[in-house]
Computed example of a mutant assay.
Amino acid sequence: MDIDYEMLPFLIPAPSQGVIAVAGHSDKKEINEILSSINHKQTQICVEMERNFLNTLEGGCTAPIGAFAELFEDQIRFKAALCSLDGKNCIATDESFVYNEEENFGKKFAKIVLENGGKELMAEIKNQI
């Protein structure tokens, strides 16, 4: 698609922000085949990584969690952050790596964030919400 947009490099969006999803009923084989044919695999990979990051942190819509994955051939760039509610304390990651279908990178990077103060930050956020 040719869509005008402006990149805001300082902003990490909410995980899966702006993605359009269409689902069919599991019993409707024909419609599911059609939907499968319009799936964009690169976007699916990125969305799954972003959602795995969010889910591993156990964050929801009100938690200040950002995640953005970009896939270029076999390379992925993954930017993500967990911030305090006031935005003064952020734990961020910005990684580039070769994509491997077997590894759950969203979960991997969430665990790194949790081990570097994210666990305490998530507890603080949950107490304030």
Rank of each mutant, 00 (worst) to 15 (best):
A110Y: 15
E103F: 09
P9W: 01
L114A: 06
M122D: 02
E33Y: 00
F105D: 02
G66R: 02
S37E: 12
E58H: 11
I38A: 08
G117F: 14
F53P: 10
G18V: 10
E73Y: 13
C46E: 13
M122E: 10
I112W: 02
N32E: 09
F72D: 09
P13G: 09
R77Q: 15
I65P: 05
D86Q: 07
G60K: 14
D94S: 06
H25N: 12
N55W: 04
N89F: 12
G118L: 08
G87N: 03
A63R: 00
Q17V: 01
Q44D: 15
P15D: 10
M1K: 05
L57T: 10
C90W: 09
E33V: 01
P64M: 02
K88I: 00
G117H: 12
L85G: 00
V19L: 11
G66M: 10
D74Q: 11
K126Y: 13
G117K: 11
A110I: 08
N32H: 13
A92R: 06
Q44Y: 15
F105Q: 03
H40D: 15
C61F: 04
A23T: 09
V113M: 04
F72Q: 04
D2N: 15
K119Y: 14
L35S: 11
P64I: 01
I3Q: 07
K111R: 14
G66S: 01
Q42R: 07
Y5I: 03
K29T: 10
N39W: 01
E70L: 05
V19Y: 14
I129Q: 11
G18S: 09
Y5V: 06
I31P: 00
N127E: 15
F68W: 13
N116I: 10
E6R: 07
